[in-house]
Structures are given as C-alpha cells and as structure tokens.
Design a protein around this nucleic acid. Structure first.
Lengths: 212, 212
DNA sequence: GCTATCGGAAAGGTACACTATCCATATGCG
DNA sequence: CGCATATGGATAGTGTACCTTTCCGATAGC
C-alpha cells in the first residue's frame, strides 16, 4: 500500500506519518521508483503501536523511539531488553532526589529482600518511586511510605497475571512488544480500575449520609 | 512572608509563583499596601500541592485548577467531591470510543455487580478504561481484557489500604486533599513498584537462573 | 492527457508552561 | 534621609513538543 492507504487504515494523517518517518518511528517504505514507496502490514502494525504508546502510554516521541530501538534489538537477553524498555517507558523526572525518600526506598528494598536488585540512584523506576515519596512528604504525608508494602502485596497478584499473559503470548519476537503494551496499557487500566474501586468504596463509606 | 521568601521556601521561582497567582492556582496574598502583599503557610502548603500535582501527577495547569476548585468547595458531599476530583485528575482523552471496548467495560461492570455505578460514556475514568482496551485491541492484544479481573483482585487489596490511609488522615478538611494526593502519588508509586515486580519476575524467568 | 497522489524537504503553526521586562511603589539598612 | 533591592501587576517574549502546511517535480491510474 502507499501512504494514503496507510493513513486511511490507521486513522493517522498523512502529514503525521511523514513526520514519524522523519523521526525514525516508522521504517521507510520500499521505494519502487524515486518517488513512490510501498508499505506493508508491518508498517501498519508499527504505526498502531506508536499511537498506542503516545495516546495511552503518554510517551514522548523521543521515548517512543527509544522503546522501538529496544524492541528491534535482537542480540540481547530478554531480561536486559526488559530493563532497557522499562527505562525508556519511564519518564526520567529531572529533580534532585530527596535523601529521606531514597532511604525509604532502600528500606523498602531491604524489607523485600531485593537489595542487590537495583541501584536506587541509577534507574528511572527507583528515581520515580523516590520522587513520588518525596512529593508525599512535601505535602505533609510523611507516612505515605507505609503504603508500599500493601501496594506490593496487591501488585504481586497483578504481576503474576501479567507474567502469565505475556508467556501465553509467547510468539518468539512479540514477547517484548507484549511487555511494552502490557506495561503501558496496563498502567492506564490499573489507574482507571483503581479509581473505580475508590468510587465504590467512597459510595459505601460517604454515600448517602449528608456531611455534618 | 512576601513572595521572595515563599519562593525560597518552596523552590519555585518568583516568576512562576506570579504565573500561578494569575492562573488562580494560588490565592492572592493579603495586600498591606498597593504593591505589597503578605503570604502565610497556607500559601506555601498550597504551592507545594500544586507542584506535586504537576510534577508527580503530570496534571496540566487547567486540571490543577479544576482539582483545587473541587478541593475548596465546601457545600458538597464527600462522595460527590471525590467524583469531581476524579474527573479532574483523569485526562479526558479525545478519541471516539470503540464499541467493542465499551462492551468489554460493560461486561466487566456486570461481572463485578457495578452496573448502576457509572455510565460508561459519561465518565473520564470509564472512557480511559475503554480507550486503553481499544488500544490493546488495535495492536493485536484482543484478550488483554481478560486481565481486568485479576487486576481488580489486586487493586482491592490496594484500595483497602488507600481507604484505611485516608480515614486515618481524617483531619476535617484535609480528607479530600488526602484523596487527591493519595490517588495521584499512589498512581506513580504503583507504576514504579509494578515495574520493579516485573523486573524481579523477569530475572526469575529469563535471567541466569530459571526456576525450573 | 489529465488529475490526483506521491515522496521528500522546509517552513509554519499551535498549545503549553513558564520567563523576562517594565514601572511605579515599598522596604530595609546605614 | 538616601539608595539599592524587592514588590505587585501587567504585558510581552521564550522554549519545547508535536504536528501541519506548503512547495516541488515525479508518478499512477483512468
């Protein structure tokens, strides 16, 4: 197909597709003449992945590129690849780390027997966790960190489901793409379902009674 | 204090504070003369809340304003207030809803006995859920929706911890602010901890020591 | 032959979140 | 008092991100 049909089938404007091609988010089509190119279903699939990452995952164009590079790299262990992808799909966050929050994270790791797993200062994920705990402190919720353990308890159930889902979708190369999709779309789903759960809880607790 | 000290104590530049004042994110200080105003600890607290919503929650300035209006509204039930706040802290997402995804959401609600709770087409949260499921479909993960139930199972544990946290922090007016902080910072924490869990699981499965 | 579309490059546009400048006061210190 | 500095308020400007628009000469397809 040519770019017009790619646009029609994906819902992405032609100008935007050209922009993604320029930015390296989409591989170039096969040139059949100096100014005609041919795109296939892989391009369509990749384009839809890009839109999912941008729209649902909220990733920047630069992050999407990082993710796709990791997805496309073949000569790497799955574990390393997941690490690369996780860094790419986690927004860095520029602020300095609060030492108190770093200590919270380290204590959490120690409690969970994962001390050797990650260096707090080196990973976007732990940086994000420390930043969030620091923000909680700054608005007067010093003991928000006490929620880490129950959160992990619930997330173990969720991570188990994630793993099972991923391994069931064990097409040879799709597994990393499945991780990306599952992680980012999973984030959005978790966010939404958690809010629904809050709503139901709030209905039970604050529902009919008028406030004093 | 005057704006300079407010800036020093919060780490937010004076120009940015002025911008927030213009945008109604921060109430004006008490004027002691035509061009001198006085700010107190409430301003500092509010300013830190704004930064937490922007930095950790990733909210736009407009969304922050919506949240603060809801937080400051006094004559409303807590349940309604939570609803307003939830709408404000959940990005709308402009796309059309995919009927298949809407059906997934409705079936999920029916399974969980929450049919009367929310109108799928009317709430940002359900819109977000349907959008996420639709995106999953579009990249070839039609059965991602099967994860909804295990996700809810894990989130019940988490929501219970959230509720207990909120009610323990039951200062009369702070409860809504606690909900906002707990929800948004909680989102970030959940995201991070889930990635850590994935990393550990990946280490077990794909790392150097497979469990079996 | 004629019109629509193409690939490719470059310039333009829009939205957002600040940031800088200006100015007529006010403050605080010596 | 004198004077550098800071202030409130208004207006204009900046930087980044993500597209759009416009142009071009070259096909494609009827």
């Amino acid at each position: 197909m040519r770019v017009g049909e790619l646009s029609k089938r994906s819902g992405v404007p032609v100008a935007t597709i050209k922009y993604y091609l320029r930015e390296g988010l989409l591989p170039a089509g096969v040139l059949t003449s100096p100014n005609q190119a041919h795109y296939d279903d892989e391009h369509l699939r990749r384009l839809r992945l890009v839109r999912a990452l941008v729209d649902v995952g909220g990733l920047s164009i630069a992050s999407v590129r990082d993710v796709l590079v990791a997805v496309d790299t073949r000569d790497d262990s799955l574990h390393n690849k997941l690490g690369t992808v996780q860094e790419a799909i986690t927004q860095p966050g520029s602020a300095e780390l609060d030492p108190l929050a770093v200590k919270d994270v380290q204590e959490f790791f120690a409690r969970q027997g994962a001390t050797d797993c990650v260096d707090v200062t080196e990973s976007h994920v732990t940086h994000m966790l420390a930043t969030a705990l620091s923000a909680a402190r700054s608005v007067g919720h010093d003991d928000f960190r006490n929620l880490l353990d129950p959160y992990l308890e619930g997330l173990k159930i969720i991570a188990r489901a994630d793993l099972e889902y991923i391994t069931r979708h064990g097409s040879p190369d799709d597994i990393i793409e499945g991780m990306v999709v599952g992680t980012l779309i999973g984030d959005a789903v978790l966010k939404a379902v958690r809010r629904l759960a809050h709503g139901q809880v709030s209905r039970e607790v604050f529902g009919q009674r008028p406030p004093d």
